[in-house]
Design a protein around this nucleic acid. Structure first.
Length: 429
DNA sequence: TCTGGGGTCCTAGGACCC
DNA sequence: TCTGGGGTCCTAGGACCC
């Protein structure tokens, strides 16, 4: 059966979620800001039309904000995560369970090879209609013979109004495809970012049509196997299927601080909080970590400041998911890399060498396996975390209220409308 | 004054082994 | 004075994605 993929993607996902519960934002230029209200991570169509780029620092666009009355919201991941789950469930209704891959918070691939008679455009329209009606969110659908082509189709469905939100490249004549592809820049292809784009341009390859016509083997010599595969996928040869969801291979928890931090004590409090978050995710996927790494950052955007970006880690004698052990390990690393006299702006914790809980090998000199009491304590922590949110209970200094300086800014956070009884939407009669 | 956070995969080079 | 060749594993760093 000929491979065929669909990619369903929510338009301006975070902004669309905010608008769903606050209709005063409809038609108004709106952005959602990153953690700490640092920079723009989602833009409404009106803001995109003003030429605001993804990742623009918020403080750099204040003139534009005043001029055009741009509204902003702080990131509300409780809301986006829940809306994502609902949306993915609705999209998944159109295929068997094994034929859906949730690729990111706002995108899902569907493997259509088991539905050779389904009309791509009609299917796309149905999905659009149902997600709009059941979730209140706008999506676009792209269909192609490979995942890369489905991505490209989705890009066209979004950018070219003529497609009406659905683009099926498998229904397009080869000539028509090349005509369209000649109008799309290589940088718009999935897997071709800024660096590779510049490199391709220097080789005289500017459009998707040109890239599609290039010999993949020649490109491999210069640019590596990733680009080779991308070109083959553009040529219609599937190099990647649907990915099975594997447990993560690394878990990161990090934040920029609300204000700069100088002392070992404050850094310790921050790092302990991040360990708590990482350990929660770790246990959530049923893994244990073999390595704990910690890194610190000063402000890279102020070259006049003394810079220091250390990163170090420790191997644990045995992979662990125990918060006390992980916290102790992180503390040891932090003490090793901490140096006085720097203006720290960010810290992070990285758990690596993740192993399945059931496949952990006992060491020769271990104390007995983690005691049942200890495991019960961890399970209780996880329940508290799930019920009350991240910072209520922790280890050591984690979450102590007085050490406020490093906690992040969230100036305009919308309520967790769908995940917290206390924050339900109120409709005035 | 203010510039996100969490991931994946690939590659090159060094260490080590036989 | 002369000093192999081939393989694996690990790590750091780069590029990309959302």
């Amino acid at each position: 059966m000929a491979p065929r993929f669909a990619l369903v993607d929510v338009n301006n996902f975070y902004v669309s979620c905010e608008r769903l519960y606050d209709p005063t934002l409809l038609g108004v230029p709106t952005v959602v800001l990153s953690n700490g209200d640092g920079c723009v991570v989602a833009r409404s169509a009106e803001v995109k039309a003003l030429g605001v780029r993804m990742g623009t620092p918020w403080h750099q666009m204040q003139d534009l904000v005043r001029q055009h009355g741009i509204q902003y919201r702080s990131s509300n991941y409780a809301l986006y995560g829940d809306m994502s789950r609902r949306t993915m469930n609705v999209i998944g209704q159109f295929v068997a369970r094994d034929d859906q891959e949730v690729y990111s918070i706002d995108e899902s691939f569907l493997d259509l090879r088991r539905y050779p008679h389904a009309d791509g455009a009609a299917l796309g329209s149905q999905i659009r209609h149902r997600v709009a009606q059941w979730c209140g969110l706008p999506v676009c659908v792209g269909v192609g013979a490979t995942r890369t082509l489905a991505k490209l189709a989705n890009h066209l469905a979004k950018k070219r109004p003529g497609f009406g939100g659905v683009c099926d490249l498998t229904a397009m004549a080869a000539r028509d495809f090349l005509d369209v592809a000649a109008t799309v820049a290589v940088g718009d292809v999935w897997g071709i970012g800024g660096k590779l784009s510049a490199h391709l341009n220097s080789l005289g390859i500017h459009t998707v049509a040109q890239l599609t016509g290039t010999d993949p083997k020649r490109l491999r010599e210069r640019l590596g196997v990733v680009v080779e595969r991308t070109v083959r996928e553009l040529q219609g040869i599937a190099c990647q299927g649907l990915d099975v969801v594997e447990p993560r291979q690394q878990i990161i928890a990090s934040r920029s601080f609300g204000e700069p931090v100088f002392s070992h004590e404050d850094l310790k409090a921050a790092v302990q909080t991040y360990v708590g978050r990482a350990a929660y995710k770790l246990r959530g996927q049923g893994s244990r970590a073999g390595t704990v790494k910690v890194w610190l950052e000063t402000n890279r955007f102020r070259p006049q400041d003394p810079q220091y970006h250390p990163c170090a880690g420790v191997h644990l004698p045995n992979p662990s998911d125990d918060l006390a052990e992980l916290t102790r390990a992180a503390g040891v690393v932090l003490a090793r890399i901490y140096k006085d006299g720097y203006r720290y702006t960010k810290a992070g914790v990285l758990l690596e060498e993740l192993a399945d809980q059931t496949h952990v090998q006992g060491g020769l000199f271990d104390a007995a396996e983690a005691s049942p009491r200890r495991q019960a304590l961890m399970a209780t922590l996880d329940r508290i975390h799930a019920r009350f949110g991240r910072t209520e209970v922790g280890m050591g200094h984690a979450g102590v209220k007085e050490t406020k300086g490093w906690t992040m800014r969230r100036g305009r956070l919308s309520p967790a409308y769908t995940t917290d009884w206390a924050q339900l939407l109120v409709v005035e009669a």
